[in-house]
Amino acid sequence: MKKSKLFTGLGVIVITGAFLIAADHIDAPSAMGTTADIADFFAFEPTTGSDNTVFAVDLQSDVLDGLEYGTFDESVLTEINIDTDGDLVEDMVIQAIPRDGRMYFFGPVAPTTTGLSSQVLVDVPLGDVEISTTTAITETTASGISIFAGPRQDPFFFDFGRFNEVLAPSPEDNSGFNVPGTDTFDGANTMSIVVEVPNSLIGEATGTNVIGLEVYKTWITTNRLQ
């Protein structure tokens, strides 16, 4: 079985829920501002009552207006980890890694290793798609999985300027945030990876949330080639 060895520990975001969002934009020092930096992770049903789940990963957030789109790093593997039995250990993974202008996907499949080391599961190819630029390009595989990779505007909204003023030792005006405030991320970009997968291919949901919706526990890791 052919595999490429990678080691991770560069960034992790954990979420649970049928529609929940996690965002940090400032990862650990080893990943912050690098091509492995995780900005946002979204997991949701594409429509109410759908039998599919969409996983959307944003990498490499640029927090200054007018910056050009980045590029995916061919030495970074992005892995969507899915826990189906509630023990917070990945039972299924979907992997994505770029090569020569295309994003290659593998899985969903049980990983050969868990935790902070991963291997590219080249024996379980899912499909590949041209990395989009100005026009969105998607592919749908024979198994009904839709895939996308390319730059998109950063969806995060936060007023960093006002945040720093409120936190300053002696701010002139510490009355709170302005409404609606100034979005520091307006015009900033991320590199996005999106997978829509039938739930039947990723196993049973972990349980139900407070409003009765079935949920998975899922998180993202970025893995750099060693």
Rank of each mutant, 00 (worst) to 15 (best):
G107L: 03
T206D: 04
Y104T: 01
G181D: 05
P125G: 06
V120W: 12
N52G: 01
L64I: 10
T190Q: 01
K2Y: 13
W219R: 03
D91K: 04
E68D: 15
S175Y: 06
E139A: 14
G9E: 08
S170G: 10
N178W: 06
E45C: 04
I80N: 06
F41N: 06
E45L: 13
Q153Y: 14
N223V: 01
Y69V: 02
I193Q: 02
L67N: 15
V215L: 04
F148Y: 15
Q226A: 14
A96P: 02
V124Y: 15
D159L: 08
T35W: 10
D73A: 08
T48Y: 12
D27G: 02
A136W: 08
P198K: 07
V166W: 15
I80T: 05
V63Y: 15
T8Y: 00
Y216M: 04
L213V: 03
D58R: 10
T190N: 05
F106A: 03
L126W: 11
E130M: 04
T34Q: 05
E79I: 02
N174S: 13
P180L: 05
G161T: 14
L116A: 13
V120F: 12
S118F: 06
F72R: 03
V129E: 04
A22Y: 02
L67S: 15
D91H: 07
A96G: 06
D159A: 12
G207R: 14
D85W: 09
T112C: 05
I21L: 12
E45F: 07
Y104K: 09
A22H: 07
T47I: 14
N164D: 11
T190Y: 02
N209F: 14
L167P: 01
I193Y: 06
G176T: 07
V57W: 08
P111S: 11
G17D: 06
R152Y: 11
L167V: 07
A43D: 03
G144F: 09
N174K: 14
S143C: 05
T16C: 03
